[in-house]
């Protein structure tokens, strides 16, 4: 592997986001393709971070620094990847549902997805079903992620899915849901495509669903 690619991996692992722009540009100048930078530099770094997080050697703030580094590099290579028609991880539209103001879990999921290479469009909290549907129309994401922490707001997830169906958009997007009171049974019941109980598995789920 080229030295530059392994430096990219290391910088991702160390979360050195301030250095990412220059190293990514250096790699491109060396003649490395955006595709190669992504798959042989950035992703192996992020995979390592993910694995270390799982076993408890790295912590949330470490992962978020790595995700920030990933994001910095992606701002440069995403347009190049698009030009050359290389498939990227895709887009995630994310929000906390109507009536619900709990947003830290959702934010964490968003940052983890960014770390996994997704472009994340965060609609914030207290998001109307109609706003989710509009965002699906506008951004054409691979994945729609909804978060709810309240028993009283769980219903808004189902309503959103119904409206998507009504608008003929349901088969255009994969839906993943989460939040403390949510479980797999509930996901099945409202015909969501997936459920994850924490942010690390959420980004894995997002990758899985966008295959």
């Amino acid at each position: 592997m080229s030295d530059t690619l392994s430096t990219i991996s290391t910088l991702i692992i160390e979360g050195k986001f301030a250095d990412m722009i220059s190293i990514t540009n250096a790699a491109l100048e060396e003649g490395l393709s955006a595709d190669k930078i992504l798959n042989d530099g950035l992703m192996p770094g992020m995979d390592h971070v993910g694995a270390e997080f799982k076993v408890g050697n790295l912590f949330v703030p470490d992962v978020l620094y790595s995700a920030k580094a990933m994001q910095a590099a992606m701002t440069i290579i995403r347009p190049l990847l698009a030009e050359t028609g290389v498939e990227t991880a895709g887009k995630v539209v994310l929000g906390t549902v109507k009536g619900d103001l709990h947003d830290i879990g959702k934010n964490l999921v968003g940052m983890m997805c960014e770390g996994a290479g997704f472009e994340v469009i965060d609609l914030g909290n207290d998001v109307d079903p109609e706003v989710f549907v509009e965002a699906v129309k506008e951004h054409k994401p691979t994945i729609l992620g909804m978060s709810a922490l309240l028993t009283t707001t769980l219903g808004a997830m189902e309503r959103t899915i119904k409206i998507l169906e009504g608008a003929g958009l349901r088969d255009k997007v994969k839906i993943m849901i989460g939040g403390a009171p949510v479980n797999q049974d509930f996901a099945d019941q409202i015909t969501a495509d997936g459920y994850a109980s924490n942010a690390a598995t959420a980004s894995e789920l997002a990758k899985e669903l966008s295959k």
Binding site: F59, V60, P61, L108
Partner: peptide, 8 residues
């Protein structure tokens, strides 16, 4: 406390 190893 937000537990930084579980994110919970």
């Amino acid at each position: 406390l937000m537990d930084m190893s579980k994110g919970l």
